[in-house]
Amino acid sequence: MTPTPVSAPNAGGRLQGRVALITGAGSGIGRAAARLFAAEGARLVLGDKTEAVHATARQVIDAGGQAVALQIDAGNEADVMRLVATAQEAYGQLDIAFANAGISGGMAGIFDATVDLWTEVLRVNLIGPWLMIKHAGKVMADAGRGGSIICTASVAGIRSGAGGPAYSASKAGVINLVTVGAQQLCEAGVRVNAICPGLTETGMTQPTFDYAKDKGVTHKLGRLNPLRRAAQPDELANAALFLASDQSSYVNGQALVVDGGLSSSHPVTRQLTGQTAV
């Protein structure tokens, strides 16, 4: 995967004058969102469990943007509170929170998975976004300027077939969580939405992409969706930017699916245009 060059901040950008917090910013969608949000004028607080978050911040700073990086556990309340406090201390405000961090938990089936596995997946993937809504949302509500919270769910949270049971259940929870969050933060003008990526080349899915490359079958990745390909992180970052910006000012409590059309249909035998279906 060739990373998109980091653009210098745009003085008239869609996020000019705003402060954005992004978790899972060490790679993949989170890193792409950090570069894009900064290019659109946002000042950033970036969190990730790995040291790579500092490299993301360096990319933003080298391009002329502003970013603070912290190594955190997105499913730990004290760490989420520290991220939110850092935004207030560094920039005096918080306008956007992108709860993007997540783990796959593997593909262990219903009978094979352990309670410990389920607990960890739910802690990071579902409790983490709730903590972001709880603490970032409170700061936004108290400030009285509104705001936007985005959570990364997944097509796996819509129906089966796109992830293991624990992962799928956690992402279904995120989709419901944003609807509840949107209702409970409505008086403060804080919007809460989710993005639901399909197969995307990120740090979490890198083993799948590496295996396909080793076997010479990269052309098969994403072949089940109508676009017949996998997504790149920048494509999901663009969806997050839309939800973070005023361009989505009337979008609230929604799960925006970005999957190449994968979830638009039940499984069928693919037919060429003009042929009779069977």
Rank of each mutant, 00 (worst) to 15 (best):
Gln232Ala: 08
Ser160Phe: 07
Ala153Ser: 15
Lys134Asn: 10
Tyr91Cys: 04
Asn100Cys: 14
Ile127Thr: 15
Ala99Ser: 14
Thr208His: 07
Pro267Ser: 11
Cys151Val: 09
Asp48Cys: 04
Ala231Leu: 14
Arg159Asp: 02
Ser154Tyr: 10
Ser248Asp: 08
Gly65Asp: 03
Asn76Gly: 02
Pro5Cys: 13
Leu46Gln: 03
Thr202Ala: 02
Gln271Ser: 14
Ala34His: 00
Thr114Gly: 10
Ala153Val: 03
Ala188Trp: 06
Arg82Ser: 15
Glu89Lys: 11
Ser265His: 14
Ser248Asn: 08
Ala237Cys: 10
Val45Tyr: 08
Leu221Cys: 10
Glu201Lys: 07
Asp48His: 06
Leu46Trp: 06
Ile133Asn: 03
Ala230Lys: 02
Thr50Ile: 07
Ala239Arg: 03
Val257Asp: 01
Ala8Trp: 13
Ala172Met: 04
Gly137Ser: 06
Ser248Tyr: 02
Ile150Ser: 04
Ser27Ala: 15
Ala97Trp: 09
Thr205Ala: 13
Ala255Val: 03
Gln232Lys: 14
Ile158Ala: 06
Thr152Trp: 04
Ala67Ile: 01
Asn193Gln: 00
Asp259Ser: 08
Ala169Val: 14
Leu94Lys: 06
Cys186Val: 10
Ile110Glu: 10
Thr179Lys: 15
Asn193Ala: 04
Gly260Tyr: 02
Thr200Ser: 09
Met81Asn: 12
Ala255Gln: 01
Ala230Phe: 13
Arg229Ile: 08
Gln206Arg: 15
Leu224Trp: 10
Leu272Ser: 11
Gln93Tyr: 05
Leu131Trp: 05
Gly17Lys: 11
Phe111Trp: 10
Ala244Gly: 05
Ala42Asn: 00
Ser160Pro: 01
Leu131Phe: 07
Leu94Phe: 06
Leu117Asp: 14
Pro233Met: 01
Val178His: 00
Gly164Trp: 02
Leu224Phe: 12
Thr119Gln: 14
Ala25Thr: 15
Ile133Ser: 00
Gln93Cys: 06
Leu241Tyr: 05
Arg43Gly: 00
Asp214Ala: 15
Asn238His: 12
Leu21Asn: 00
Ile175Gln: 04
Arg159Pro: 02
